[in-house]
C-alpha cells in the first residue's frame, strides 16, 4: 500500500508514487493513482518534468533547481508538490541501503522455502 500522506518537506527525497501514472497532455499531464483511483492534473510542462525527475535528485529542492524553476516561481511549485503529496500522488523516498534489502529477501526465502539453499 502507498504511504499515508505526510507533510511535504522539500529538503527531503521524493518520488512520483509507485502506483501513479502520468499521461502527457498538451497543457501538462493527467495524473492517475491506481490505488485510490484519484485523478489529478499537472497544469504546466515544467511541473511534469519536476515530478518525473524527483526520483533522480537528493531532494525536491534540488529537483526544482535542476529543472530550471526560476526563483520567483519556487513558492508556487513547492505548493503544487505539497498538494500532490497530500493526495499521495508523490511519496517520500526511503531508499533502503542495498544491504538491508538483501537481508530482507534472505529472511523471506528462509521462511517460505526452507528446502531452498
Amino acid at each position: 500500500m502507498p504511504t499515508t500522506a505526510v507533510a511535504f518537506d522539500p529538503s527531503l527525497p521524493w518520488q512520483k508514487a509507485r502506483s501513479v501514472a502520468l499521461r502527457p497532455e498538451p497543457f501538462g499531464a493527467l495524473v492517475y493513482h491506481f490505488g485510490n483511483r484519484k485523478l489529478s492534473f499537472l497544469k504546466s510542462r515544467t511541473l511534469v518534468a519536476v515530478v518525473e525527475a524527483l526520483a533522480e535528485h537528493p531532494t525536491a529542492d534540488a529537483t526544482l533547481t535542476a529543472c530550471g524553476v526560476p526563483e520567483a516561481q519556487r513558492g508556487t511549485y513547492v505548493k503544487a508538490l505539497a498538494d500532490l503529496a497530500r493526495s499521495n500522488m508523490i511519496e517520500a523516498r526511503t531508499s533502503l541501503p542495498p544491504a538491508t534489502r538483501r537481508l530482507a529477501a534472505d529472511a523471506c526465502r528462509q521462511a517460505d522455502q526452507p528446502e531452498d539453499s
Binding site: R23, P24, E25, P26, F27, L30, L39, F41, K43, S44
Partner: peptide
C-alpha cells in the same frame, strides 16, 4: 489556439489527447 495556463475547464474545452 489553445491558451497556455489558466483554468482547467478552459483547457478541457480544447480537448485532451485521450478521453477521461
Amino acid at each position: 489556439a489553445r491558451p497556455i495556463g489558466g483554468r482547467l475547464v478552459d483547457q478541457f474545452e480544447y480537448g485532451l489527447d485521450a478521453p477521461i
